[in-house]
Computed example of a mutant assay.
Amino acid sequence: MKVWIDQDLCTGDGLCEEIAPDVFTLLDDGLAYVKEGDKIFSEPGGVEGLAEFPDSQLDAVIESAEECPGECIFIEA
């Protein structure tokens, strides 16, 4: 599975990072980005920052997307 964040919609609330810290991180610009291991997909972000995540994180990623106030988290198969 893959996930990306539309930074134009991100409110910087940080719920995604709280729910799934292995997949999401907030950077100094106050916006959330996806990560794959130690690699943070911040340049570019958005749809170009599509990161794979392990199946074990699926429930947390779905919860992050559902709880996100900016509705900016997109999950792809």
Rank of each mutant, 00 (worst) to 15 (best):
P69C: 10
D29Q: 15
F74R: 12
I19P: 03
P69G: 12
E18F: 10
V3C: 05
A65I: 03
L50P: 01
G46P: 01
I73Q: 07
I73W: 07
S64R: 04
G37Q: 12
A65R: 02
E43C: 10
A77C: 01
I75R: 14
L27S: 08
D22S: 13
C68L: 11
C68W: 05
V34S: 13
Q57I: 00
P54I: 00
I5T: 05
I62S: 01
Y33K: 13
G49M: 15
A65S: 14
V47G: 00
E66M: 07
S64P: 06
G14V: 04
I5S: 02
A51L: 02
I75N: 14
D8P: 01
G45A: 15
E66H: 02
S64A: 13
G37H: 13
G46N: 11
Q57E: 15
E67D: 11
E48A: 15
A51H: 04
I40F: 11
E52N: 11
G45F: 14
V23Y: 04
F41S: 09
L27Q: 14
E43M: 11
F41R: 12
E17A: 12
E43T: 08
T11P: 07
L26H: 09
K39R: 15
G70W: 05
E52H: 10
D55C: 00
E17F: 08
E18T: 12
L15G: 10
A32S: 15
D59W: 00
D55N: 07
F41T: 01
G46H: 07
T25S: 11
S42W: 12
M1F: 03
E18L: 14
S64C: 06
L58V: 00
Y33I: 12
I40L: 12
C16Q: 04
Q57V: 00
A77K: 14
C72V: 09
S42P: 03
C68I: 07
G12M: 06
W4K: 12
Q7L: 06
L50T: 04
G49C: 14
I75H: 14
I19T: 04
A60E: 01
D29E: 15
K35G: 05
L27W: 08
G45S: 14
A65L: 04
F53W: 02
S64H: 04
V34M: 11
A32T: 10
V23K: 04
S64V: 01
